[in-house]
């Protein structure tokens, strides 16, 4: 009989912590939102309607598929700046990169609701590095807005 070896768990929040470790200047904010994973993720995943509600630099965002099938997002910021993101979106996982911005959100069910983690900020173009200006505070603020938005949608 082939033995069944134990395999370590590696959830989406741990995945975000690991990936953020490779981004110079990145910080990960975490917060438990007292709602189910499905309700929280429904909002995070609705990028076209909800991303701007918790990522204040985003005003409009439109998703489309690139020629290779990759998910792309054309975004316009508060100051009218345009950005084209490459996007990874799957249950509990959002990772977006443009030339100037990086956004990561992860979520897992947790005692008391859903553990949500966020990272990102203004990117130093061409590098896995963020301008280290209040990134921790900005990510924590994004999670506060997300928690409020989940509550609003009740």
């Amino acid at each position: 009989m082939k033995p069944s070896w134990p395999v370590a768990e590696f959830d989406q929040v741990r995945r975000l912590r690991a990936l953020a470790a490779g981004v110079s200047g990145a910080a990960v904010a975490e917060r438990t939102v007292p709602e189910s994973f499905d309700r929280v993720w429904e909002i995070v995943a609705d990028l076209e309607h909800e991303l701007g509600a918790f990522e204040p630099d985003m005003r409009t965002i439109r998703l489309r598929r690139g020629p290779d099938g990759a998910l792309l997002a054309d975004a316009r910021g508060r100051l009218g700046l345009r950005a084209r993101f490459r996007v990874e979106l799957e249950p509990g996982w959002l990772w977006m990169q443009s030339r100037f911005l990086m956004i990561g959100v992860a979520a897992v069910p947790a005692p008391g609701g859903t553990l949500v983690a966020a990272t990102g900020g203004f990117r130093i173009p061409g590098r896995a590095a963020l301008f280290p200006l209040a990134v921790r505070h900005a990510n924590a603020r994004a999670l506060r807005r997300l928690a409020a938005r989940v509550e609003d949608r009740g």
């Binding site: 070896w5 134990p6 395999v7 370590a8 768990e9 590696f10 959830d11 741990r14 995945r15 912590r17 690991a18 990936l19 470790a21 490779g22």
Partner: peptide, 28 residues
């Protein structure tokens, strides 16, 4: 990640999730 989880699980047992995370943090 699945590779690290497969190596860490049988060695770290109950600490496998933390070991996989610390591994991948060090890697990246």
């Amino acid at each position: 990640a699945p590779y690290a989880a497969r190596v860490c699980g049988p060695i770290a047992l109950a600490d496998g999730a933390d070991a996989a995370q610390e591994t991948l943090i060090a890697v990246f």
